[in-house]
Amino acid sequence: MLEYIGDIFHHFVDPKKRVFLGYIALSILIAILWLVFLKKKRLKSAIFKVFDKKILLSGSAISDYKMFLINRVLMLILSPYLLTQLAVATFFYYSLLSIPLSGLISFLNDTPAIVVAILFTFVFFTFDDFTKYWVHRWMHKWPVLWALHKVHHSAETLNPITVYRTHPLEGILFSLRGAFSQGTVISTFFFIFGDKVDLVTILGVNFLVFSFHVAGSNLRHSHIDIKYWVWLEKILISPAQHQLHHSLDERHYDKNFGAALAIWDWIFGSLHHSEDIDNLKLGVEDNDFDPNSITELYLKPMKEISDIASESLSSLKSLNKIFKI
């Protein structure tokens, strides 16, 4: 039993995870420094602001915490059945071997191991981020996927645990994305560079992922609206930019899909710089939806998906009728 409880809360002690307590502590520090030095608040009021009860104990936050617990248990049960990046990597590696490419890439054989490791680490991170951008964009644009992703957007206050406010079916899609993006990069690098491939790590974590978390990734889901310079917001998504992504204001719809990098939003026309807004209203417009009801958070998306499916089916049938006539 204790072992299971340990597994559920393991993310808080795993430096690979955003909610690792060390990253959360650093995020708190960054938030306080931002409020004191840039927002000219007194230390005490900065601390009060960071630990605002209205945010951390709001109905929305409480449902985040409940979803964290339920989802962790569900994913522990499901994870052995999910496709792993190793399975994808093995499959791609086998496929690459059957293509007579080795002659074409033999000039890369002498690449020094350190160069290979740095290249791998950058490509791995960038490609992963790129696929996150597109999957996230599809989650917003396709009605079936939006039905799932809406659960995350129904949060009316943001805190670091809001990342777990995710429908489990969406979680499965994300894990497939991860397996695909990571598996292809791993296998391609192994095919080209063999056993020279390695990951540059700090505390056992990809050093780029580590930097992203150390730089306060937890503040994306928070009420601390840290902004970057305009030029930097075209490269890296600032916490304030992501908070705009959660905004109820129509102007902010379908903007800032990026995870760590803003370049994808910039290139594909969905970038929105941060703005000075007091009391940004967050959530989704949906009158039938109680964002604080756990039952609705889990079941409503299924109902919506089945409605969409039956609608498409009936429109197909009517099309059929038209053609028969």
Binding site: V163, F174, G178, A179
Partner: peptide, 10 residues
Amino acid sequence: VGSSDSAEND
């Protein structure tokens, strides 16, 4: 690189 078998948004 770690697994991505967790229900988490970014």
